[in-house]
Each structure stands twice: as C-alpha cells, then as structure tokens.
Computed example of a mutant assay.
Amino acid sequence: MKKWLTKLRLVSLFALLTLVLAGCGKPFVSALRPAGEVADMQYSLIMLSIYIMVFVTAVVTVIFIYVVWKFRFRKGDEDKIPEQVEGNHKLEIIWTVIPILLLIVLAVPVVAATFELADVRPMDRENRTPDDALVVNVRANLYWWEFEYPDYGIITSQDLIVPTDERVYFNLKAADVKHSFWIPSAGGKMDTNTENINRFYLTFDSGRTEQAGDYFYGKCAELCGPSHALMDFKVKAVSKDEFTQWADNMKTYEASAEGDLAQQGEQLFEEKGCLGCHAVNPVDERPEQARTGPNLASFGERSRVAGILPHDEESIKNWLRDPEKYKPGNKMTNTYPKLEEQEIDALTEYLQGLKVESN
C-alpha cells in the first residue's frame, strides 16, 4: 500500500511539473505571438490542428467513459455476456469515414499554405529591383549569422535589418554544418544546408513590431554543435524609408578610429591579424576573407556582443579575454592571440566606435 501511494505521489508531482513547465519560456521565442503574414498563416494551421485534436480527444473520452460505465461489472451478472458487435458495417464505416474527413479538413489548408509559402517567383523576375522584391542572402556559420543584401552590395552580421509591411525573400545556405534559420514571431524555421540553397519569404507587420520590443529574436533551430543554443541573432524591423536610409549609410560608410586609444585599437586590429577574418566595412573588396568571421562594420550599434552578451564595455572585454568561455567550440578560439589588458582596452574602444548611423 505504501509503495502504491509513493508511486501515486511521484506521478502526481511529475504531472504537475509538466503542466507548469509547459507555460515556461520567453514570449519572443513563441510562435503563438505572430507578427506577420507568414506567421499568421502558420498560426491558423496550428489552431486548426489543435481544434481537431481537441474534438477527437473529447469524442473518444466521452465514448470511453460511456463504455466503462455501461459495461461495468455488476453483481449478479458474472455469467452475462454483452451483445457482440463484431463486423458491424455501420460502425466500421463511421469510424473510417470520420478520420478521412478530418484529415481532408486539415490537409487542404496545409497543402494550400505550403504552396503559397513556397512561392518565391518574385526573386527570379528579370530586371528585379529591391522595391519589387528585397532579397537577403543568409549564411549560417559556427556560431554566427551573416546577412548579405546583394541589391545594395552590403554585408552585415548578427543584426538583420528589414523593412516592415512587405515580403522579404531569403536565400539560405550554411558555411560548415547544417543549421536552421528561425524567427519565431515571423514564421517557421527553414534549414540551411551546405550543399543547396533553400528559399522562402517572411513579412514583419509594422503594427505588431511593438510586441517584440526593440528587436525580434532569431535562433538556430537545428542542433549544430556545443554552442547551438547560443547561436542567436536579432531582427530590427523598420519602415521602408528608414531601411533605405540605413542601406545608403552602409554603402557609403568607411571605418575610422577617433581618439588616441581607438587608433591604437585600430592598429592592433591589423597587427594581430583580425582583418584576416573580420571586415570592418559593409562593402568589402575581399568578400571571401571578410566572411571567415562576422562583419564588424556596425558593431558599435548592435544589441548584443557575440549574439548573447549585453552590449556594453565589460562584455566586449570579457569576450576578448576568453571567447571560448562564452561560446564553446567557436572558430575564433583556436586562432585567437593572447591579449594584454591594455590591448583589450584599446580594441574595445575601437570596436565601440564602429557605428554606421552616427557617420
């Protein structure tokens, strides 16, 4: 009896924990707070499938309770055999047809939405302009993201800037292993592969960007290594005019250091070989070299350091001291030189001054 009570308590405890933990999580990584055309469509499909599952569960539960009650053991009926209904054609037709109808109800909108979301023909139109269809090339790396705007000839990393109220088309590719591009509030995930390019589009409604705060959050949704959970990026959705102004600023920006300490940092950046992996201009004449590490052109304006740390002086210094501590397995660890504190101060000052908007 005591063993049975102990097991019952454990089962009840785990059931309660499951219920409580099901409500945990950050709102910005929830697909249940849609903020665009694609997310709305996918949210509707999620709700439709939930309604169907709840309906089926309710019907089965009612039938189960009815059968348990009707055919319960009664005193005096030990030898009574209930009426057998094996081979009842009417029942067999009912429980065959109903699931088929439910599948059709779910399958038709899912297939229609799949074809709609796969329509990227505007990307391939002749004489296409950014006003017709804005294209962003996404490249996933261990463990950071690169965003290239081919129509503008600019490259940035970690912070994705997009215009609101229009479709943004993406070419997705991985530089090393399989990753997955996911902005929960904007739409479902899409894999990034090394051997092929996946394409899709997303939209960001201007009327619902407030729910994301300053940024929408993006993540890698495919297990890719020890720092998979830390492979985040931010999405800033702005008006079309603001986006155009940002792109123009990026095209004309040239990195420069102001102040003695920042100039020392710029010199160190070159001497330590940082330029071999990182570009500091969004329009770079050495694109392949620039893509070995994140483009740092707008580093001083980003929302996070390495995609995960608060963007402040102390976090930058901590990252420069020991990147492996904050992102295990990152490519910078094996090639990174040991820095003195004075060198870290100078590099931090230089990196904080890499700002496009203020130039």
Rank of each mutant, 00 (worst) to 15 (best):
Lys3Arg: 15
Leu8Gly: 13
Arg9Leu: 12
Leu17Trp: 13
Val20Ile: 15
Leu21Phe: 14
Gly23Thr: 09
Leu32Thr: 11
Pro34Cys: 05
Pro34Leu: 02
Ala35Asp: 06
Glu37His: 05
Glu37Thr: 10
Val38Pro: 00
Tyr43Gln: 04
Tyr43Ala: 05
Ser49Trp: 01
Met53Glu: 11
Val59Asp: 12
Ile63Arg: 13
Phe64Arg: 14
Phe71Thr: 00
Arg72His: 07
Phe73Cys: 00
Lys75Leu: 00
Gly76Gln: 01
Glu78His: 00
Pro82Met: 01
Asn88Trp: 07
Asn88Arg: 07
Lys90Trp: 10
Lys90Gln: 03
Trp95Thr: 12
Trp95Cys: 09
Thr96Ser: 13
Val97Glu: 08
Pro99Arg: 03
Ile100Phe: 11
Leu103Asn: 12
Ile104Phe: 10
Leu106Asn: 02
Ala107Thr: 05
Val108Trp: 06
Val111His: 02
Ala113Thr: 15
Ala113Gln: 04
Phe115His: 15
Asp119Gln: 05
Met123Cys: 02
Asp124Pro: 01
Arg128Val: 13
Pro130His: 04
Leu134Gly: 01
Val135Ile: 15
Asn141Gly: 00
Leu142Gly: 00
Glu146Ser: 09
Glu148Ser: 14
Tyr149Arg: 07
Gly153Ala: 05
Gly153Lys: 03
Ile155Ala: 13
Thr156Ile: 06
Ile161Val: 12
Val162Thr: 12
Val162Ile: 15
Asp165Met: 06
Glu166Tyr: 02
Arg167Thr: 03
Tyr169Ala: 04
Leu172Trp: 04
Asp176Leu: 03
Asp191Tyr: 10
Thr192Ile: 02
Asn198Gln: 14
Phe200Trp: 15
Tyr201Phe: 15
Leu202Gln: 07
Asp205Gln: 06
Thr209Ser: 11
Thr209Ile: 12
Thr209Trp: 01
Asp214His: 00
Phe216Met: 08
Lys219Trp: 03
Cys220Thr: 09
Leu223Thr: 10
Gly225Ile: 03
His228Asn: 13
Lys236Trp: 05
Lys236Thr: 08
Lys236Cys: 03
Ser239Cys: 05
Lys240Gly: 01
Asp241Thr: 12
Thr244Asn: 04
Asp248Ser: 11
Asp248Gln: 13
Asn249Arg: 05
Met250Leu: 04
Ala255Gln: 07
Ala255His: 05
Gln264Cys: 01
Gly265Gln: 11
Glu266Ser: 11
Gln267Leu: 07
Phe269Cys: 04
Lys272Ser: 06
Leu275Ala: 09
Val280Met: 12
Val280Arg: 10
Asn281Asp: 15
Asn281Glu: 11
Pro282Val: 02
Asp284Lys: 07
Asp284Trp: 07
Gln289His: 14
Thr292Lys: 08
Ser298Leu: 07
Ser298Arg: 04
Arg302Ile: 02
Arg302Asp: 11
Val305Leu: 11
Ala306Arg: 07
Gly307Asp: 08
Leu309Asp: 14
Leu309Cys: 12
Glu314Ala: 14
Ile316Ser: 12
Asp322Pro: 10
Pro323Gln: 14
Pro323Thr: 09
Glu324Ser: 14
Tyr326Trp: 15
Tyr326Asn: 14
Pro328Leu: 13
Gly329Phe: 09
Gly329His: 12
Met332Gly: 07
Met332Cys: 06
Thr333Val: 07
Asn334Lys: 15
Lys338Pro: 01
Glu340Cys: 01
Gln342His: 03
Ala346Val: 04
Leu351Cys: 10
Leu351Ala: 10
Gln352Ile: 03
Gln352Asp: 07
Val356Ala: 08
